[in-house]
């Protein structure tokens, strides 16, 4: 049975578009339209399609199909730490 807390967490789920500004400022280019492969289930999604859990000390991006963690992002005063160990690959076009 879904609890009220579950509902609130579900309501709080955003998508990768929500961290587009943070990623663009870190990587120097838009990242929301780049595809990546989930290392857990092999689904290819664009960053903008990943589920974003932003109400935490960092941001967690999960696969929309298997719900496993694909990317974690933590900001500190001096750096942005991106753990992409849940992605088998990310493909960026040459500019």
């Amino acid at each position: 049975m879904a609890t009220r807390v579950d509902d609130e967490i579900e309501d709080a789920v955003l998508d990768g578009n929500a961290v587009g500004g943070l990623l663009a400022s870190s990587f120097g280019a838009d990242m929301t339209a780049i595809p990546g492969r989930c290392a857990h289930c092999n689904t290819v999604s664009m960053i903008g399609q990943l589920r974003a859990y932003t109400r935490a000390p960092g941001t967690v991006l999960r696969c929309p199909v298997c719900a496993e963690v694909v990317v974690r992002i933590v900001e500190t005063p001096t750096s942005v730490l991106v753990d992409a160990s849940g992605a088998a690959w990310l493909r960026m076009d040459r500019r």
């Binding site: 578009n17 500004g21 929301t32 339209a33 960053i47």
Partner: peptide, 9 residues
């Protein structure tokens, strides 16, 4: 800061 995003366009 922006514009941001290339997916929902």
């Amino acid at each position: 800061r922006g514009p941001i995003g290339g997916y929902f366009v």
